[in-house]
Amino acid sequence: MQQHVVKLLEAYGRPDIEWHHVPNGEHRAPRTAGRLKTLGTHAGVADLMLTIDGRSYAVELKTVTGRQSAAQQRWQERFERAGGLYFVARGLDQAIAVLTGIGAFRAGITIISAPDGSGVRTRLGAEAPAATRSPRAAGVPA
Rank of each mutant, 00 (worst) to 15 (best):
Q68Y: 05
H42I: 11
A11I: 04
T38D: 07
W19S: 05
R74F: 07
V5E: 03
Q3V: 05
R78N: 13
V59A: 09
L124W: 11
L61S: 05
R78P: 02
M1A: 10
A29K: 14
A131E: 05
T110H: 05
L36M: 12
T32I: 14
Q3A: 14
Q76S: 10
A82S: 15
D53S: 13
D116H: 04
G125E: 07
G119T: 06
H4T: 14
T32P: 00
Q76G: 00
L39Y: 08
V64S: 07
W19Q: 05
T122S: 08
A46D: 02
H42R: 15
R35I: 14
P129N: 13
E127M: 12
A130M: 09
F105Q: 03
E77F: 07
W19C: 07
K37W: 05
V59L: 07
H27L: 14
Q2L: 12
A104L: 02
A71S: 15
I17K: 02
L48G: 02
Q76R: 15
L9V: 03
A114N: 13
L9C: 06
V59E: 05
V45N: 01
A71L: 01
P141I: 06
L39D: 06
T122Q: 11
A95E: 01
A29F: 08
V140Y: 10
G108D: 12
E26C: 08
V98N: 03
M1D: 02
L8W: 09
S56N: 13
A82E: 13
L124D: 08
S56L: 13
V45C: 06
L85H: 10
L48W: 02
V6E: 14
G117F: 03
D116E: 10
T65H: 07
R31H: 09
T32F: 09
R136H: 08
R31I: 10
A128E: 01
A82W: 12
F105C: 09
T38S: 13
A89R: 03
Y86D: 02
L48D: 01
A58P: 00
T132Q: 15
G66I: 02
F105K: 04
R121P: 00
P129V: 02
Q73H: 10
G40Q: 08
A70G: 13
Q3M: 07
R35L: 15
E60W: 04
L39G: 03
I111Y: 06
D93Q: 10
I102W: 00
N24W: 15
G84T: 00
R121A: 10
G108A: 04
S56A: 14
D93I: 02
D116C: 07
D116A: 07
R74T: 15
V5W: 01
R78M: 08
A137D: 11
G13K: 01
I96S: 00
E60N: 11
V140L: 14
A29Q: 14
A138S: 14
Q68D: 11
F79R: 04
G108E: 01
S134P: 00
R14V: 03
Q94T: 04
A130E: 10
T38E: 04
